[in-house]
Amino acid sequence: MADPQTTRNPFTDAESQAVGVEIHDLSKRFGQVEVLKQISFSVAPGEIFVLMGPSGSGKSVLLKHIVALEKPTSGRVLVDGREAASEEIRETVRMALVFQAGALFNSMSVYDNLALYPREHRVTNEQGIREKVMRALQILSLENAHQKYPSELSGGMKKRVAIARALVMEPQLMLYDEPTSELDPVMSATISEIIATLKEQYHVTSIVVSHDRELALNIADRVGILMGGRLVFLGPPAELAQPKDPRVADFLNPRIDLQNPRFKQLET
């Protein structure tokens, strides 16, 4: 297994410094709505951190701050000890975000989707790019899909292609936005296995936003739970077996109550 302070490149076996993430008092406001309220936590290099929470709790917005697609209203987001939005981070730290819907380029084949990053950044020549792309597709068991277009792929395949595209970037930090949503249980388990394998083999720091309890319990080193824009739980997944906070308990083990349904409680 790799040294926890280094990330191993899946294509060249070269090792580079693993990066961590620190979030200090992060708040985000959209108009009058405060989506994130003074969030603070850190993710250690090489760790799998799973961020859970109900829909609309601000998980994806938080993820977008790490890749600088959103700017904080207040607070700081640091990657490898430096401001996440800085040009320096963009140039020196390889971060990849796997979007919830894949965000594959619909006008390009799977091969071209994967080849775009190395081509644009002139990582290597066309032969080298071909080797990288085919290796990434092989890791994700997608060798036969390289000529297909995103519209010809199933939901699970799209997610795997999105992960393969991220992998081609040789990331030091992988961010996943709902990687198992809209997938059947077997495919969800497959994606969880892929994330865990990438950590085991390449020691990539991973932050996973998910609703998937199984994924969190099985692959996370630590879990954070966001509710109403606040971090209400932060700890190892084992602590989720008997959560102290009743809101966390209800979120993780929701009981279907036909006598007193939740939507009726919301009305009153």
Binding site: K64, V67, L69, R90, E91, M95, A96, L97, F99, A101, A103, L104, F105, N106, L116, Y117, E120, H121, M169
Partner: peptide
């Protein structure tokens, strides 16, 4: 369409 379906965001995260 690229913006709505996050393809533009994907480009930005790739530093393209």
């Amino acid at each position: 369409s690229m913006k709505v379906y996050q393809e533009i965001d994907a480009l930005e995260t790739m530093n393209i």
